[in-house]
Amino acid sequence: MKEVNKEVLVTSANKLMFDMSDEEYNNLLAEFDVIISQMNLIGDIEGVDEAIPMTFPFDVTNTYLREDVATPPMDRNEALRNAKDVVDGQIRLPRVVK
């Protein structure tokens, strides 16, 4: 496991497209002592690494095709109602090629 330091936490935050203040990073670094201790409890479980990862509570097999029924789509203006900057039915973003 990667060593927990501020640089790693900054990388982890930036991957998710946000940043934190120095104080927030320091608080999180302190929290990680407990978090790593809690995570180590999982490593203590006998046979854990031989188990098959569980991604959902139980297997669900849905073998059906939905009927091909046309339904009216949402109105474009309605779909764009919550976007802050809309021009000609499209969301406007800062210019990419300056």
């Binding site: 496991m1 995570m39 999982i42 490593g43 479980i45 046979g47 854990v48 690494d49 031989e50 188990a51 098959i52 990862p53 569980m54 991604t55 509570p57």
Partner: peptide
């Protein structure tokens, strides 16, 4: 070591 192992542990718990 973390995410996949947690998913494995979930299996053992369940």
């Amino acid at each position: 070591e973390l995410f996949v192992r947690a998913q494995k542990c979930r299996r053992l718990i369940v």
